[in-house]
Design a protein around this nucleic acid. Structure first.
Lengths: 232, 232
DNA sequence: CGTTGCATTCGACCTAAGGATAATAGTGTT
DNA sequence: AACACTATTATCCTTAGGTCGAATGCAACG
Protein backbone atom coordinates (compact mmCIF):
# COMPACT_ATOMS: atom_id res chain seq x y z
CA UNK A 1 0.00 0.00 0.00
CA UNK A 2 2.93 2.29 0.60
CA UNK A 3 3.85 2.62 -3.06
CA UNK A 4 0.35 3.57 -4.01
CA UNK A 5 -0.38 6.43 -6.39
CA UNK A 6 -2.71 9.26 -5.38
CA UNK A 7 -4.23 12.05 -7.41
CA UNK A 8 -5.13 15.22 -5.54
CA UNK A 9 -7.60 17.50 -7.27
CA UNK A 10 -8.26 20.85 -5.63
CA UNK A 11 -8.13 24.33 -7.06
CA UNK A 12 -7.01 26.02 -3.85
CA UNK A 13 -3.19 26.05 -3.81
CA UNK A 14 -2.89 26.37 -0.05
CA UNK A 15 -5.24 23.56 0.70
CA UNK A 16 -3.72 21.39 -1.99
CA UNK A 17 -0.34 21.84 -0.37
CA UNK A 18 -1.72 21.05 3.05
CA UNK A 19 -3.37 17.93 1.69
CA UNK A 20 -0.19 16.81 -0.02
CA UNK A 21 1.73 17.39 3.18
CA UNK A 22 -0.77 15.41 5.20
CA UNK A 23 -0.85 12.51 2.79
CA UNK A 24 2.93 12.36 2.63
CA UNK A 25 3.12 12.19 6.39
CA UNK A 26 0.28 9.71 6.81
CA UNK A 27 1.24 7.43 3.96
CA UNK A 28 5.00 7.70 3.40
CA UNK A 29 6.18 6.58 0.03
CA UNK A 30 3.05 7.19 -2.00
CA UNK A 31 3.32 8.93 -5.33
CA UNK A 32 1.22 12.06 -5.65
CA UNK A 33 -0.13 13.67 -8.78
CA UNK A 34 -1.87 17.04 -8.51
CA UNK A 35 -4.63 18.63 -10.54
CA UNK A 36 -5.87 22.20 -10.21
CA UNK A 37 -8.93 22.11 -12.45
CA UNK A 38 -11.27 19.66 -14.04
CA UNK A 39 -9.27 19.95 -17.23
CA UNK A 40 -5.98 19.09 -15.56
CA UNK A 41 -7.69 16.36 -13.57
CA UNK A 42 -8.79 14.74 -16.80
CA UNK A 43 -5.22 14.86 -18.07
CA UNK A 44 -3.79 13.60 -14.81
CA UNK A 45 -6.10 10.62 -14.54
CA UNK A 46 -5.72 9.90 -18.23
CA UNK A 47 -1.96 9.69 -17.83
CA UNK A 48 -2.28 7.81 -14.55
CA UNK A 49 -5.15 5.44 -15.06
CA UNK A 50 -3.42 3.04 -12.69
CA UNK A 51 -3.92 5.43 -9.77
CA UNK A 52 -5.14 3.90 -6.54
CA UNK A 53 -7.17 6.82 -5.25
CA UNK A 54 -8.39 10.24 -6.23
CA UNK A 55 -8.90 12.95 -3.63
CA UNK A 56 -11.49 15.20 -5.17
CA UNK A 57 -12.74 18.62 -4.25
CA UNK A 58 -16.24 19.36 -5.50
CA UNK A 59 -16.33 23.05 -6.63
CA UNK A 60 -13.47 23.09 -9.08
CA UNK A 61 -13.13 25.38 -12.09
CA UNK A 62 -14.77 23.66 -15.00
CA UNK A 63 -17.34 21.76 -12.99
CA UNK A 64 -20.36 22.44 -10.86
CA UNK A 65 -21.88 20.15 -8.34
CA UNK A 66 -21.28 16.48 -8.67
CA UNK A 67 -20.45 16.29 -12.34
CA UNK A 68 -16.74 15.71 -11.79
CA UNK A 69 -17.45 12.87 -9.38
CA UNK A 70 -19.98 11.27 -11.69
CA UNK A 71 -17.57 11.65 -14.58
CA UNK A 72 -14.76 9.92 -12.73
CA UNK A 73 -16.95 7.08 -11.53
CA UNK A 74 -18.24 6.44 -15.02
CA UNK A 75 -14.91 6.83 -16.77
CA UNK A 76 -12.67 5.06 -14.28
CA UNK A 77 -14.88 2.84 -12.17
CA UNK A 78 -11.84 0.99 -10.86
CA UNK A 79 -10.34 4.04 -9.14
CA UNK A 80 -11.98 4.92 -5.84
CA UNK A 81 -12.76 8.59 -5.30
CA UNK A 82 -12.66 10.28 -1.92
CA UNK A 83 -14.45 13.59 -1.73
CA UNK A 84 -12.63 16.25 0.25
CA UNK A 85 -14.89 19.19 0.87
CA UNK A 86 -15.74 22.02 3.18
CA UNK A 87 -19.43 21.14 3.07
CA UNK A 88 -20.64 18.97 5.90
CA UNK A 89 -24.36 18.68 5.19
CA UNK A 90 -25.53 15.07 5.48
CA UNK A 91 -27.53 15.45 2.28
CA UNK A 92 -24.41 16.34 0.30
CA UNK A 93 -22.45 13.53 1.89
CA UNK A 94 -25.13 10.98 1.21
CA UNK A 95 -25.50 12.05 -2.36
CA UNK A 96 -21.76 11.84 -2.89
CA UNK A 97 -21.86 8.24 -1.72
CA UNK A 98 -24.87 7.56 -3.92
CA UNK A 99 -22.86 8.86 -6.85
CA UNK A 100 -20.20 6.31 -6.03
CA UNK A 101 -17.69 8.10 -3.80
CA UNK A 102 -15.67 5.76 -1.60
CA UNK A 103 -15.29 8.32 1.16
CA UNK A 104 -16.36 11.79 2.19
CA UNK A 105 -13.79 13.70 4.18
CA UNK A 106 -14.88 17.09 5.53
CA UNK A 107 -12.01 19.54 5.57
CA UNK A 108 -12.44 19.79 9.31
CA UNK A 109 -11.53 16.14 9.82
CA UNK A 110 -8.59 15.60 12.22
CA UNK A 111 -5.37 14.37 10.65
CA UNK A 112 -5.37 10.92 12.19
CA UNK A 113 -8.94 10.39 11.02
CA UNK A 114 -7.89 11.31 7.52
CA UNK A 115 -5.17 8.69 7.74
CA UNK A 116 -7.66 6.07 8.79
CA UNK A 117 -9.97 7.09 5.99
CA UNK A 118 -7.30 6.93 3.31
CA UNK A 119 -6.02 3.55 4.43
CA UNK A 120 -9.55 2.23 4.57
CA UNK A 121 -10.30 3.40 1.04
CA UNK A 122 -7.01 2.09 -0.34
CA UNK A 123 -8.00 -1.27 1.14
CA UNK A 124 -11.17 -1.15 -0.90
CA UNK A 125 -13.39 0.04 1.92
CA UNK A 126 -15.66 2.98 2.43
CA UNK A 127 -15.28 5.76 4.98
CA UNK A 128 -17.64 8.44 6.22
CA UNK A 129 -17.59 10.74 9.23
CA UNK A 130 -19.05 9.05 12.28
CA UNK A 131 -22.01 11.23 13.11
CA UNK A 132 -23.59 11.06 9.66
CA UNK A 133 -26.78 9.02 9.40
CA UNK A 134 -26.65 6.87 6.27
CA UNK A 135 -30.35 6.97 5.71
CA UNK A 136 -33.01 9.61 5.97
CA UNK A 137 -36.74 9.73 6.44
CA UNK A 138 -37.00 12.70 4.13
CA UNK A 139 -39.11 11.39 1.31
CA UNK A 140 -38.07 14.03 -1.17
CA UNK A 141 -34.40 13.45 -0.48
CA UNK A 142 -34.80 9.71 -0.82
CA UNK A 143 -36.32 10.20 -4.22
CA UNK A 144 -33.35 12.25 -5.30
CA UNK A 145 -30.94 9.74 -3.80
CA UNK A 146 -32.55 6.97 -5.76
CA UNK A 147 -32.09 8.98 -8.92
CA UNK A 148 -28.50 9.73 -8.01
CA UNK A 149 -27.81 6.01 -7.72
CA UNK A 150 -29.46 5.45 -11.06
CA UNK A 151 -27.24 8.05 -12.64
CA UNK A 152 -24.25 6.34 -11.06
CA UNK A 153 -25.23 3.14 -12.83
CA UNK A 154 -24.83 4.67 -16.27
CA UNK A 155 -21.97 3.53 -18.45
CA UNK A 156 -19.34 6.08 -19.49
CA UNK A 157 -20.84 6.51 -22.92
CA UNK A 158 -24.35 6.76 -21.57
CA UNK A 159 -23.26 9.43 -19.15
CA UNK A 160 -21.64 11.42 -21.92
CA UNK A 161 -24.86 11.23 -23.87
CA UNK A 162 -26.84 12.38 -20.85
CA UNK A 163 -24.58 15.36 -20.21
CA UNK A 164 -24.78 16.47 -23.81
CA UNK A 165 -28.52 15.98 -23.71
CA UNK A 166 -28.64 18.31 -20.71
CA UNK A 167 -26.97 20.87 -22.96
CA UNK A 168 -29.97 20.61 -25.24
CA UNK A 169 -28.10 18.95 -28.06
CA UNK A 170 -29.72 16.88 -30.76
CA UNK A 171 -29.08 13.17 -31.14
CA UNK A 172 -27.50 13.99 -34.47
CA UNK A 173 -25.19 16.53 -32.89
CA UNK A 174 -24.20 14.17 -30.10
CA UNK A 175 -23.53 11.50 -32.68
CA UNK A 176 -21.20 13.87 -34.48
CA UNK A 177 -19.43 14.80 -31.26
CA UNK A 178 -18.85 11.19 -30.31
CA UNK A 179 -18.19 10.14 -33.89
CA UNK A 180 -20.77 7.37 -34.03
CA UNK A 181 -24.02 7.02 -35.92
CA UNK A 182 -27.24 8.62 -34.79
CA UNK A 183 -28.75 5.16 -34.34
CA UNK A 184 -26.16 4.47 -31.68
CA UNK A 185 -27.06 7.61 -29.77
CA UNK A 186 -30.70 6.64 -29.94
CA UNK A 187 -29.84 3.28 -28.43
CA UNK A 188 -27.87 4.96 -25.66
CA UNK A 189 -30.71 7.36 -25.10
CA UNK A 190 -33.14 4.51 -24.71
CA UNK A 191 -30.81 2.85 -22.21
CA UNK A 192 -30.44 6.08 -20.25
CA UNK A 193 -34.19 6.56 -20.07
CA UNK A 194 -34.67 2.98 -18.94
CA UNK A 195 -32.02 3.19 -16.24
CA UNK A 196 -33.39 6.46 -14.94
CA UNK A 197 -36.95 5.19 -15.08
CA UNK A 198 -38.05 7.95 -17.44
CA UNK A 199 -39.93 8.02 -20.69
CA UNK A 200 -38.81 11.15 -22.48
CA UNK A 201 -35.54 12.92 -23.14
CA UNK A 202 -36.90 16.16 -21.78
CA UNK A 203 -37.33 14.60 -18.36
CA UNK A 204 -33.78 13.29 -18.46
CA UNK A 205 -32.41 16.69 -19.43
CA UNK A 206 -34.19 18.46 -16.60
CA UNK A 207 -33.13 15.76 -14.20
CA UNK A 208 -29.47 15.94 -15.13
CA UNK A 209 -29.66 19.68 -14.83
CA UNK A 210 -30.95 19.49 -11.27
CA UNK A 211 -29.02 16.51 -10.07
CA UNK A 212 -25.59 17.36 -11.32
CA UNK A 213 -25.56 21.09 -10.87
CA UNK A 214 -27.65 21.65 -7.79
CA UNK A 215 -25.82 22.43 -4.63
CA UNK A 216 -27.59 23.18 -1.41
CA UNK A 217 -30.89 24.54 -2.65
CA UNK A 218 -32.77 21.71 -4.23
CA UNK A 219 -31.37 19.03 -1.98
CA UNK A 220 -34.05 19.40 0.60
CA UNK A 221 -37.17 19.63 -1.43
CA UNK A 222 -38.37 17.49 -4.28
CA UNK A 223 -41.16 17.25 -6.69
CA UNK A 224 -42.67 14.70 -8.99
CA UNK A 225 -40.30 13.45 -11.61
CA UNK A 226 -41.55 10.56 -13.67
CA UNK A 227 -45.05 10.12 -14.95
CA UNK A 228 -46.33 7.21 -16.96
CA UNK A 229 -46.86 7.75 -20.65
CA UNK A 230 -50.48 7.97 -19.79
CA UNK A 231 -53.49 7.48 -21.94
CA UNK A 232 -55.05 10.32 -23.81
CA UNK B 1 -55.00 56.18 -4.24
CA UNK B 2 -56.14 55.81 -0.68
CA UNK B 3 -58.90 53.34 -1.49
CA UNK B 4 -56.58 51.07 -3.33
CA UNK B 5 -56.61 47.31 -2.87
CA UNK B 6 -53.47 45.44 -1.89
CA UNK B 7 -52.73 41.72 -1.78
CA UNK B 8 -50.07 40.61 0.66
CA UNK B 9 -48.59 37.18 -0.03
CA UNK B 10 -46.18 35.85 2.57
CA UNK B 11 -46.14 32.54 4.38
CA UNK B 12 -44.60 33.89 7.58
CA UNK B 13 -47.48 34.97 9.89
CA UNK B 14 -45.38 37.38 11.93
CA UNK B 15 -43.94 39.12 8.96
CA UNK B 16 -47.28 39.19 7.20
CA UNK B 17 -48.75 40.95 10.21
CA UNK B 18 -45.91 43.43 10.34
CA UNK B 19 -46.34 44.16 6.68
CA UNK B 20 -50.07 44.64 7.02
CA UNK B 21 -49.47 46.95 9.96
CA UNK B 22 -46.93 48.96 8.03
CA UNK B 23 -49.11 49.28 4.96
CA UNK B 24 -52.11 50.33 7.03
CA UNK B 25 -50.06 53.05 8.65
CA UNK B 26 -48.35 54.21 5.47
CA UNK B 27 -51.42 54.11 3.25
CA UNK B 28 -54.50 54.60 5.43
CA UNK B 29 -57.71 53.36 3.91
CA UNK B 30 -56.37 50.74 1.58
CA UNK B 31 -58.09 47.39 1.49
CA UNK B 32 -55.80 44.44 2.21
CA UNK B 33 -56.19 40.83 1.16
CA UNK B 34 -53.80 38.25 2.52
CA UNK B 35 -52.45 35.02 1.08
CA UNK B 36 -50.32 32.48 2.90
CA UNK B 37 -49.36 30.15 0.08
CA UNK B 38 -49.22 30.08 -3.66
CA UNK B 39 -52.52 28.29 -3.68
CA UNK B 40 -54.27 30.91 -1.59
CA UNK B 41 -52.58 33.65 -3.58
CA UNK B 42 -54.12 32.25 -6.74
CA UNK B 43 -57.52 32.29 -5.10
CA UNK B 44 -57.02 35.77 -3.67
CA UNK B 45 -55.97 37.33 -6.93
CA UNK B 46 -58.63 35.42 -8.80
CA UNK B 47 -61.28 36.88 -6.54
CA UNK B 48 -59.66 40.31 -6.58
CA UNK B 49 -58.42 40.75 -10.11
CA UNK B 50 -59.01 44.48 -9.70
CA UNK B 51 -56.22 44.71 -7.10
CA UNK B 52 -53.82 47.59 -7.48
CA UNK B 53 -50.71 45.92 -6.13
CA UNK B 54 -49.41 42.59 -4.96
CA UNK B 55 -46.73 42.40 -2.30
CA UNK B 56 -45.06 39.09 -2.98
CA UNK B 57 -42.61 37.05 -0.99
CA UNK B 58 -40.51 34.71 -3.08
CA UNK B 59 -40.07 31.37 -1.18
CA UNK B 60 -43.64 30.52 -0.49
CA UNK B 61 -45.04 27.03 -0.06
CA UNK B 62 -46.00 25.77 -3.48
CA UNK B 63 -43.40 27.69 -5.41
CA UNK B 64 -39.67 27.82 -5.81
CA UNK B 65 -37.68 30.63 -7.14
CA UNK B 66 -39.35 33.07 -9.43
CA UNK B 67 -42.20 30.97 -10.68
CA UNK B 68 -44.86 32.77 -8.62
CA UNK B 69 -43.70 36.14 -9.93
CA UNK B 70 -43.60 34.92 -13.50
CA UNK B 71 -47.03 33.40 -13.08
CA UNK B 72 -48.55 36.61 -11.76
CA UNK B 73 -47.00 38.72 -14.46
CA UNK B 74 -48.26 36.41 -17.17
CA UNK B 75 -51.70 35.90 -15.67
CA UNK B 76 -52.40 39.43 -14.46
CA UNK B 77 -50.11 41.74 -16.38
CA UNK B 78 -52.15 44.74 -15.28
CA UNK B 79 -51.41 44.28 -11.57
CA UNK B 80 -47.96 45.48 -10.54
CA UNK B 81 -46.02 43.14 -8.28
CA UNK B 82 -43.62 44.33 -5.59
CA UNK B 83 -41.22 41.68 -4.33
CA UNK B 84 -40.67 41.72 -0.59
CA UNK B 85 -37.77 39.50 0.31
CA UNK B 86 -34.96 38.90 2.74
CA UNK B 87 -32.50 38.41 -0.08
CA UNK B 88 -30.51 41.46 -1.07
CA UNK B 89 -28.20 40.12 -3.76
CA UNK B 90 -28.17 42.48 -6.74
CA UNK B 91 -28.44 39.49 -9.09
CA UNK B 92 -31.71 38.41 -7.50
CA UNK B 93 -33.04 41.95 -7.52
CA UNK B 94 -32.15 42.47 -11.15
CA UNK B 95 -33.69 39.21 -12.21
CA UNK B 96 -36.88 40.04 -10.36
CA UNK B 97 -37.14 43.26 -12.35
CA UNK B 98 -36.35 41.39 -15.55
CA UNK B 99 -39.25 39.08 -14.76
CA UNK B 100 -41.47 42.12 -14.54
CA UNK B 101 -41.54 43.10 -10.87
CA UNK B 102 -42.43 46.74 -10.30
CA UNK B 103 -40.37 46.98 -7.14
CA UNK B 104 -37.98 45.02 -4.99
CA UNK B 105 -38.19 45.80 -1.30
CA UNK B 106 -35.61 44.11 0.92
CA UNK B 107 -37.06 43.27 4.29
CA UNK B 108 -34.45 45.51 5.85
CA UNK B 109 -35.87 48.59 4.14
CA UNK B 110 -36.82 51.42 6.56
CA UNK B 111 -40.53 52.10 6.94
CA UNK B 112 -40.58 55.49 5.28
CA UNK B 113 -38.72 54.05 2.31
CA UNK B 114 -41.34 51.34 2.02
CA UNK B 115 -44.00 54.03 1.96
CA UNK B 116 -42.22 55.81 -0.86
CA UNK B 117 -41.86 52.57 -2.73
CA UNK B 118 -45.51 51.63 -2.42
CA UNK B 119 -46.75 55.05 -3.48
CA UNK B 120 -44.37 55.05 -6.41
CA UNK B 121 -45.57 51.66 -7.59
CA UNK B 122 -49.25 52.53 -7.13
CA UNK B 123 -48.55 55.51 -9.36
CA UNK B 124 -47.35 53.17 -12.04
CA UNK B 125 -43.68 53.66 -11.33
CA UNK B 126 -40.80 51.37 -10.44
CA UNK B 127 -38.81 51.31 -7.24
CA UNK B 128 -35.54 49.68 -6.29
CA UNK B 129 -33.15 50.17 -3.38
CA UNK B 130 -30.72 52.97 -4.07
CA UNK B 131 -27.40 51.24 -3.99
CA UNK B 132 -28.30 48.57 -6.54
CA UNK B 133 -26.60 48.92 -9.93
CA UNK B 134 -29.16 48.28 -12.66
CA UNK B 135 -26.66 46.82 -15.04
CA UNK B 136 -23.75 44.48 -14.73
CA UNK B 137 -20.62 43.70 -16.66
CA UNK B 138 -20.97 40.04 -15.84
CA UNK B 139 -21.43 38.47 -19.22
CA UNK B 140 -22.94 35.25 -17.92
CA UNK B 141 -25.46 37.10 -15.81
CA UNK B 142 -26.42 39.33 -18.70
CA UNK B 143 -27.16 36.27 -20.78
CA UNK B 144 -29.45 34.96 -18.09
CA UNK B 145 -31.11 38.35 -17.66
CA UNK B 146 -31.87 38.50 -21.34
CA UNK B 147 -33.51 35.10 -21.10
CA UNK B 148 -35.45 36.17 -18.03
CA UNK B 149 -36.88 39.08 -19.97
CA UNK B 150 -37.79 36.76 -22.79
CA UNK B 151 -39.64 34.50 -20.39
CA UNK B 152 -41.45 37.52 -19.03
CA UNK B 153 -42.72 38.24 -22.54
CA UNK B 154 -44.59 34.96 -22.76
CA UNK B 155 -48.37 35.02 -22.71
CA UNK B 156 -50.16 33.21 -19.86
CA UNK B 157 -50.93 30.17 -21.97
CA UNK B 158 -47.45 30.02 -23.38
CA UNK B 159 -46.04 30.11 -19.89
CA UNK B 160 -48.26 27.26 -18.80
CA UNK B 161 -47.06 25.25 -21.77
CA UNK B 162 -43.46 26.02 -20.89
CA UNK B 163 -43.91 24.96 -17.28
CA UNK B 164 -45.53 21.70 -18.28
CA UNK B 165 -42.79 21.16 -20.81
CA UNK B 166 -40.28 21.56 -18.00
CA UNK B 167 -42.11 18.71 -16.29
CA UNK B 168 -41.22 16.57 -19.26
CA UNK B 169 -44.74 16.24 -20.58
CA UNK B 170 -45.61 15.46 -24.19
CA UNK B 171 -47.47 17.92 -26.39
CA UNK B 172 -50.33 15.48 -26.39
CA UNK B 173 -50.41 15.33 -22.61
CA UNK B 174 -50.24 19.10 -22.27
CA UNK B 175 -53.08 19.36 -24.74
CA UNK B 176 -55.13 17.04 -22.56
CA UNK B 177 -54.28 18.98 -19.41
CA UNK B 178 -55.29 22.29 -20.94
CA UNK B 179 -58.19 20.73 -22.81
CA UNK B 180 -57.19 21.99 -26.22
CA UNK B 181 -55.98 20.20 -29.31
CA UNK B 182 -52.40 19.10 -29.82
CA UNK B 183 -52.17 21.44 -32.79
CA UNK B 184 -52.73 24.32 -30.41
CA UNK B 185 -49.93 23.17 -28.15
CA UNK B 186 -47.62 22.91 -31.11
CA UNK B 187 -48.49 26.47 -32.06
CA UNK B 188 -47.74 27.64 -28.52
CA UNK B 189 -44.56 25.60 -28.44
CA UNK B 190 -43.37 27.21 -31.63
CA UNK B 191 -44.11 30.63 -30.19
CA UNK B 192 -42.27 29.81 -26.96
CA UNK B 193 -39.20 28.60 -28.82
CA UNK B 194 -39.22 31.71 -30.99
CA UNK B 195 -39.57 34.08 -28.08
CA UNK B 196 -36.82 32.38 -26.14
CA UNK B 197 -34.56 32.19 -29.17
CA UNK B 198 -34.24 28.43 -28.94
CA UNK B 199 -34.55 25.62 -31.43
CA UNK B 200 -35.47 22.55 -29.40
CA UNK B 201 -37.92 21.81 -26.65
CA UNK B 202 -35.21 20.20 -24.56
CA UNK B 203 -33.36 23.49 -24.38
CA UNK B 204 -36.52 25.25 -23.27
CA UNK B 205 -37.12 22.67 -20.56
CA UNK B 206 -33.62 22.94 -19.16
CA UNK B 207 -33.84 26.69 -19.35
CA UNK B 208 -37.11 26.89 -17.46
CA UNK B 209 -35.70 24.56 -14.85
CA UNK B 210 -32.68 26.76 -14.25
CA UNK B 211 -34.33 30.11 -14.64
CA UNK B 212 -37.43 29.60 -12.56
CA UNK B 213 -36.17 27.37 -9.82
CA UNK B 214 -32.60 28.47 -9.35
CA UNK B 215 -31.89 30.46 -6.25
CA UNK B 216 -28.45 31.70 -5.38
CA UNK B 217 -26.24 29.07 -6.94
CA UNK B 218 -26.50 29.40 -10.68
CA UNK B 219 -27.04 33.13 -10.68
CA UNK B 220 -23.40 33.98 -10.83
CA UNK B 221 -22.12 31.64 -13.42
CA UNK B 222 -23.50 30.80 -16.81
CA UNK B 223 -22.87 28.59 -19.72
CA UNK B 224 -23.84 28.38 -23.34
CA UNK B 225 -27.55 28.14 -23.87
CA UNK B 226 -28.60 28.31 -27.45
CA UNK B 227 -26.70 26.81 -30.33
CA UNK B 228 -27.64 27.08 -33.94
CA UNK B 229 -29.14 24.01 -35.53
CA UNK B 230 -25.71 23.53 -36.99
CA UNK B 231 -24.58 21.53 -39.92
CA UNK B 232 -23.42 17.97 -39.55
C1' DC C 1 -10.30 -22.06 -23.23
C1' DG C 2 -14.99 -21.57 -23.89
C1' DT C 3 -18.81 -19.08 -22.13
C1' DT C 4 -21.29 -15.71 -19.94
C1' DG C 5 -22.17 -10.86 -19.35
C1' DC C 6 -22.00 -6.26 -20.67
C1' DA C 7 -20.87 -2.19 -23.43
C1' DT C 8 -21.05 -0.45 -27.82
C1' DT C 9 -22.60 -0.27 -32.20
C1' DC C 10 -26.14 -0.01 -35.89
C1' DG C 11 -30.26 -0.51 -39.19
C1' DA C 12 -35.33 -0.87 -39.66
C1' DC C 13 -39.54 0.80 -38.24
C1' DC C 14 -42.93 3.74 -36.01
C1' DT C 15 -44.19 7.85 -33.25
C1' DA C 16 -43.49 12.62 -31.68
C1' DA C 17 -41.97 17.17 -32.61
C1' DG C 18 -41.88 21.21 -35.09
C1' DG C 19 -42.26 24.63 -39.25
C1' DA C 20 -45.35 26.86 -42.65
C1' DT C 21 -49.60 28.56 -43.73
C1' DA C 22 -54.22 29.84 -43.17
C1' DA C 23 -58.47 30.44 -40.96
C1' DT C 24 -61.86 31.66 -36.96
C1' DA C 25 -62.96 33.89 -32.78
C1' DG C 26 -62.65 36.64 -28.53
C1' DT C 27 -60.71 40.66 -26.12
C1' DG C 28 -59.39 45.04 -25.35
C1' DT C 29 -57.63 49.48 -27.09
C1' DT C 30 -57.78 53.53 -29.91
C1' DA D 1 -65.60 50.59 -35.92
C1' DA D 2 -60.85 49.38 -36.80
C1' DC D 3 -56.83 47.39 -35.05
C1' DA D 4 -53.74 44.56 -32.46
C1' DC D 5 -53.11 40.61 -29.92
C1' DT D 6 -54.17 36.07 -28.02
C1' DA D 7 -56.02 31.71 -28.49
C1' DT D 8 -57.63 28.17 -31.08
C1' DT D 9 -57.58 24.70 -34.82
C1' DA D 10 -56.46 22.22 -39.22
C1' DT D 11 -53.50 20.40 -42.98
C1' DC D 12 -49.27 19.22 -44.99
C1' DC D 13 -44.61 18.16 -44.68
C1' DT D 14 -39.94 17.40 -42.83
C1' DT D 15 -37.08 16.24 -39.11
C1' DA D 16 -36.11 14.31 -34.51
C1' DG D 17 -36.90 10.87 -31.13
C1' DG D 18 -37.42 6.18 -29.39
C1' DT D 19 -38.04 0.91 -29.51
C1' DC D 20 -36.57 -3.59 -31.10
C1' DG D 21 -33.71 -6.82 -32.57
C1' DA D 22 -29.16 -8.06 -33.59
C1' DA D 23 -24.09 -8.10 -34.37
C1' DT D 24 -19.51 -7.25 -32.51
C1' DG D 25 -15.99 -7.10 -29.18
C1' DC D 26 -13.99 -7.21 -24.75
C1' DA D 27 -13.18 -8.88 -20.12
C1' DA D 28 -14.16 -11.63 -16.13
C1' DC D 29 -15.01 -16.41 -14.54
C1' DG D 30 -14.82 -21.21 -14.02
Amino acid sequence: MENAKLIIADDHPLFRAALREAVTRLLPGVAIVEAVSFQSLQEAVGANSDADLILLDLHMPGTQGFSSLVYLRAQYPAIPVAIVSAAEEPAVIRRSLDFGAAAYIPKSTPLEQIGIALRSVLDGGVWVPEHIPTSTANDAENKERDLAQRVASLTPQQLRVLMMLADGRLNKQIAGDLDVSEATIKAHMTAVLRKLGLYRRTQAAVLAQRLLQAESASLLMGEEIASEPDAE
